[in-house]
Nucleic acid binder design. Structure first.
Length: 545
RNA sequence: GGCCUUGUGGUCAAGCGGUUAAGACGGCGCCCUCUCACGGCGCAAUCCCGGGUUCGAUUCCCGGCAAGGUCACCA
C-alpha cells in the first residue's frame, strides 16, 4: 500500500516538516531540576475540589523547583464548552492563591502558545499525517452502530471490548476498499495501528504510586475524530511534548489509559514526561465510599466554599494536609510560615484515596480564622458580605471603630483568647449581628416572667454605664442576692438546694434581654460597645415582653 | 468480567522485622468559669483474612477477600 499517497488523500496539502515544530517549541531553558507542570481542564465551567487538589500539587511542584506552571485548555469536545469557563477557572484558582506563569488568557511566555487545543489543530494533523505515511495510523469507516454491535458481540462472548486485533476490521482494508469508501464520501476517523500485546507487562515508575505494572496497549485508539480534531490522548502526547512538560500530575482515573499514552509517545518518537497519578477525594455514602459527585455533593464545588465564607487559606491548608502526609506536622511547627515554604514532595503524596472530612476542614478553618488581625478579619468579612451578605450586614462596616471593638471582643481578634468555634464568614457575621441590629430573641429565659421583670428593673435602676467590669458585676450579684440566688458559684455547687439558683441565672436574664441569646461573650463589654442609651432601651423592651 | 491501584482506630495518618503501634480531627468525661468560647487534663477506639519465611511479623512472600478506578469519535 502506498501510505504516502493515502496520507496525502486524507490530509491534503503542505504541512511543515515535524522538525519545524521541534524548533518552534524548543526545549525550555530552565535551571536544572526545574519542573514544568500544567493544568489542562476542559472548559465546562465547573471547577471543583478535585481540580483544586491537583492544581495545588502541580503549582507547588513547579514553583518549588523554579519551574513553570501553565494552563492549557482541552476544548477538543465542543459539547463541553461553556462561555467564560476559562476566566472562571483562573478566578477560582486565584482565590486560592494559585497563579499560572503562562497559558490561556494568562499570556506570559508566548513561545508555547496557543494554549487552546482547537487552535492547534494543524499541529496535530501534521503529526497524524506522518503516522499515516509511516503506516502507523489508518482511516476507519466504522459507524457508531457497527461499533456498538461489536461491543455487544464482545460482551456476549465475554471478550475484551474495543477495537483491536482481529476486531479492528478497518485496519486490514485494502487500498481499493479505502479509496472506494473515501470516494463515496463516507465519514472516517484516524486510528493508531497498535503494535502492542497485552501479554506484555511493562514496569513503570509512577511519581506518586511508585513501581507499578502497566499492560501493553493493543487498542487501535482514535487519534483524529471525524471532524479532524484530535482525541484527548493524541493531543496530550503532542502538547505535553511540545510544551515541554516534565511532570504530569493528574487524577488516577487516567492510570487506565496510561498504556495508550505510552504507545503514543513511542510512536511519535517523543521522550515521555514523568507521570504522577494522585488519588481522588472520596466521600462516605452509607456503607460505601465513592468519588465526590457533582450532583449529590455541594461541597465538591469550589463555589460552595466562597458562598459559605470559608477562608481560602483554610481550604488550601486542608488540601495540603491530604496531599502531603508530613504537612500537618510541619504546619504545627511553623504555624505562621508562608505556605510556600513547605517542602512539598511528590513522593509524599498519598497512594490511596482519602475521604473528604468536613470536620477536619472546619477545625482548620477555625484555627486559620483565629489567626487574623482585626484589619484582615474585617477585610475578609467585608469581601464576603459584599457578595453574599444581606443589605443590613453590609452596613456593619460603616463604623470601623465599632466593628473593630466587636471583633476584638467576640473573637478575641488581636488578643490572646481567640474564639475558635467560628468556621466561616457567614457564621461570624451571624455571630456579631446583635451589635448592629435588634435581632429576635432566640433563646428562652429560665426564670419566670414576674421575677425576671423585677430583676430587670432593679438592675436598670442600679446600672451605671461608667462602672468598670468589677463594679458592674457587683451590681449583678446584689440583684442576685436580693432574689435568693447564690453569688458564689463554688458555694452554689456545694449546696444548690439552699438557693433559688445562681448568679449565672441572673446574668442569663440580662444577657438574653440585651442580646437575645443565652450564650455570648462578656456581657459588660457588650454593654460598653452598645452604648448607654441602647442598653437602657433593650432592657426596658425586654422588661415589657 | 478483563486490566490496574489501594487496604493501620469512625476519619487523615506515622511506623516498614522486636514499639506500651506516634500525632491530628471527631466522640466521651473532668477541670477552669456569670453563659458561650478559649485553655488544661484524661478515656474509649486500629494493624482486612488465611497460609508461609523467621526465634519473632502491622512490617517480607504467596493466596484470598474487600474497596476504588477504567474499559467512548468525553476529557
Amino acid at each position: 500500500m502506498n501510505y504516502k499517497a493515502l496520507a496525502e488523500r486524507l490530509l491534503p496539502g503542505e504541512y511543515p516538516p515535524l522538525s519545524y515544530y521541534e524548533e518552534k517549541y524548543p526545549p525550555r531553558t530552565l535551571p536544572k531540576g526545574a519542573e514544568v507542570t500544567r493544568l489542562a481542564p476542559s472548559p465546562t465551567g465547573f471547577i471543583h475540589l478535585g481540580n483544586l487538589f491537583a492544581a495545588i500539587a502541580n503549582e507547588r511542584i513547579a514553583h518549588r523547583s523554579g519551574g513553570v506552571l501553565y494552563l492549557r485548555i482541552e476544548d477538543t469536545d465542543l459539547k463541553r464548552k461553556v462561555e467564560g469557563a476559562v476566566e472562571a477557572v483562573i478566578k477560582a484558582l486565584h482565590y486560592f492563591d494559585i497563579e499560572f506563569d503562562e497559558g490561556a488568557e494568562i499570556g506570559g511566555e508566548e513561545t508555547y502558545a496557543p494554549w487552546y487545543q482547537r487552535q492547534r489543530a494543524e499541529i496535530y494533523r501534521a503529526y497524524a499525517k506522518r503516522l499515516i505515511e509511516e503506516g502507523r495510523a489508518y482511516p476507519c469507516f466504522c459507524t457508531e452502530e457497527e461499533l456498538t454491535a461489536l461491543r455487544e458481540e464482545q460482551t456476549a462472548k465475554k471478550e475484551i471490548t474495543g477495537y483491536y486485533g482481529q476486531y479492528a476490521k478497518c485496519r486490514n482494508l485494502t487500498e481499493e476498499e479505502i479509496y472506494r469508501n473515501l470516494d463515496a464520501g463516507k465519514p472516517y476517523v484516524i486510528r493508531l495501528k497498535s503494535l502492542g500485546n497485552p501479554e506484555n507487562k511493562i514496569a513503570f515508575r509512577d511519581a506518586v504510586k511508585g513501581e507499578i505494572t502497566v499492560t501493553e496497549n493493543d487498542q487501535d485508539v482514535v487519534i483524529l475524530k471525524s471532524d479532524g480534531i484530535p482525541t484527548y490522548h493524541f493531543a496530550h502526547a503532542i502538547d505535553d511534548h511540545l510544551m515541554r512538560t516534565t511532570l504530569v500530575i493528574r487524577g488516577e482515573e487516567w492510570l487506565a489509559s496510561l498504556p495508550i499514552h505510552i504507545e503514543l509517545f513511542d510512536a511519535l518518537g517523543f521522550e515521555r514526561p514523568r507521570y504522577g497519578h494522585n488519588c481522588s477525594l472520596m466521600k462516605q455514602d452509607g456503607e460505601t465510599r465513592r468519588k465526590l459527585s457533582k450532583r449529590k455533593d455541594p461541597e465538591l464545588s469550589l463555589e460552595f466554599y466562597r458562598k459559605e465564607g470559608y477562608f481560602p487559606r483554610a481550604v488550601k491548608v486542608y488540601m495540603l494536609t491530604l496531599l502531603n502526609s508530613n504537612f500537618e506536622e510541619w504546619y504545627q511547627k511553623n504555624p505562621d510560615a508562608d505556605l510556600a515554604e513547605f517542602p512539598f514532595k511528590v513522593e509524599k503524596m498519598s497512594k490511596s484515596g482519602s475521604l473528604f472530612d468536613l470536620d477536619k476542614l472546619n477545625d482548620i478553618s477555625k484555627n486559620e480564622l483565629s489567626k487574623l488581625s482585626i484589619e484582615e478579619m474585617s477585610a475578609f468579612l467585608k469581601g464576603w458580605a459584599e457578595e453574599f451578605g444581606t443589605e443590613a450586614q453590609r452596613h456593619y462596616f460603616d463604623d470601623a471603630e465599632k466593628l473593630g471593638a466587636v471583633l476584638s471582643l467576640c473573637m478575641g481578634v488581636g488578643g490572646k483568647k481567640r474564639r475558635k468555634d467560628l468556621t466561616t464568614a457567614s457564621q461570624a457575621m451571624k455571630f456579631i449581628e446583635y451589635f448592629f441590629e435588634r435581632t429576635p430573641r432566640t433563646d428562652e429565659y429560665r426564670i419566670g416572667r414576674d421575677e425576671r421583670r423585677a430583676i430587670l428593673s432593679e438592675f436598670l435602676a442600679a446600672y451605671d454605664h461608667s462602672d468598670d467590669a468589677q463594679a458592674w458585676f457587683c451590681k449583678v450579684k446584689e440583684v442576685a442576692a436580693a432574689h435568693g440566688f447564690a453569688t458564689d458559684m463554688k458555694e452554689y455547687k456545694l449546696a444548690p438546694e439552699r438557693f433559688k439558683g445562681s448568679v449565672a441565672d441572673v446574668a442569663e436574664v440580662l444577657r438574653i434581654a440585651t442580646t437575645g441569646k443565652a450564650n455570648t461573650p462578656d456581657l459588660w463589654s457588650i454593654m460598653q460597645i452598645l452604648g448607654e442609651g441602647e442598653v437602657h432601651e433593650r432592657l426596658k423592651q425586654a422588661k415589657d415582653e
